[in-house]
Amino acid sequence: MLAVGECGEVPVGAVEGAGGLAHVLREHELVVGARVVVRHRLPDGSASDALGELAAADGEELVVTTRRGEVRVRRADVLAAKAVPPPPRRRGAPHEAVGTDELEAVMAEHWRPDERVDLGGWRLRAAGGFTGRANSALAIGSPGVPLGEAVAAVEDFYTRRGLPPRVAVPHAADAGPDAPAPARELAARGWAADTPTLVMTAALSALPGAAAVPLPAGCSVAGSPEPDAGWLGLYRYRGTTAVPPAGRRVLVSADAQVFVRVVEGGTTVAVARGSASPGWVGVTAVEVAASHRRRGLARRLLAEIADWGRARGAVSAYLQVAEANAGARALYGSAGFAVHHAYHYRVHPGA
């Protein structure tokens, strides 16, 4: 198992909460839009928890939208605060019970763009064109306006930034790409479907650890919280090894991440990125040099990231794979992943 330094989850301060239990304030997790729990002191000296979406945060107070309404908490009254996983939509293990929109929201925090503007539940994202995930409008929930107005807002957002308008549309894996209402609206306007993708999940407890996946002779594994030159040199982005500055920012945008690489004779021959958020670990950027495929390196990368996630307290894992990539789908399926849902992009006809 690789040894890497912890990053992302740095205790800001420890205080005494209700029941005499020590709690940690995870300041870095208090991101607007995240689902959080905030333990705070009440006027009578007792404590209460506000669980819901963080609607606003500044140096004076936190605003949490709970099921019972909006709760405003003065910073001076905060006893503990952290982000929490989304609630389950159905019975079952967390990786199976999470809803499609909720999991999409989780994944979005593992691959954050330089810029994000919300339109109702939709997220308009831009990062200099580096990857569709960071440069598309994520159509989850309601945009809060008629779909025609939402489409116009998306077109304006990306045109102003010199980027092709693109919408990511999640849907059930067994549903056609035109099933969601946003997809039908965009199709009627001539937006073409692109890059059909499957989202696969697994219970971390079911994934093998590094000790169970030996490396070929002559290979070693290493990891770090930032990508080194060898990692970046192998990672393929649109067929090239040159990752733009915006891409480097996206790669280190999660609460925490680890960049795993397999090295042989001083040369990096396989890479992957693991990322973390409360309860979840994500697997992205898996790449194996053509000369070293079918030697179990990708399986070892998955195992390393699974160990890293378990060490951080995560219980579920996700990854995204092109629907047409039968080889990768078979690998992930044999490792313990199963299809959760699908998504595809709709691309403006002028793009």
Results as ranks from 00 to 15, higher is better:
residue 244 P to N: 03
residue 244 P to V: 11
residue 245 P to R: 01
residue 245 P to G: 02
residue 249 R to T: 08
residue 250 V to A: 06
residue 252 V to D: 14
residue 258 V to F: 05
residue 258 V to W: 11
residue 259 F to H: 06
residue 260 V to Y: 09
residue 260 V to H: 05
residue 261 R to K: 07
residue 262 V to L: 13
residue 263 V to A: 01
residue 265 G to P: 08
residue 267 T to R: 08
residue 268 T to Q: 01
residue 268 T to N: 01
residue 268 T to S: 05
residue 269 V to W: 05
residue 269 V to N: 09
residue 269 V to A: 03
residue 270 A to E: 04
residue 271 V to T: 11
residue 271 V to L: 10
residue 272 A to L: 04
residue 272 A to W: 01
residue 273 R to E: 10
residue 275 S to G: 14
residue 276 A to W: 10
residue 276 A to R: 13
residue 276 A to F: 15
residue 279 G to T: 13
residue 280 W to A: 02
residue 280 W to I: 06
residue 282 G to Q: 08
residue 286 V to D: 03
residue 286 V to Y: 03
residue 287 E to W: 03
residue 287 E to G: 04
residue 288 V to W: 00
residue 289 A to V: 06
residue 290 A to W: 07
residue 291 S to A: 14
residue 291 S to Q: 14
residue 291 S to K: 07
residue 293 R to Q: 07
residue 294 R to P: 15
residue 296 G to W: 00
residue 296 G to P: 00
residue 299 R to K: 11
residue 301 L to C: 06
residue 301 L to N: 06
residue 303 A to E: 02
residue 303 A to F: 02
residue 304 E to S: 10
residue 305 I to Q: 03
residue 305 I to Y: 01
residue 306 A to K: 05
residue 308 W to P: 14
residue 311 A to H: 11
residue 311 A to E: 14
residue 311 A to N: 08
residue 312 R to Y: 09
residue 312 R to Q: 12
residue 312 R to C: 08
residue 313 G to A: 15
residue 314 A to W: 12
residue 315 V to G: 12
residue 315 V to M: 14
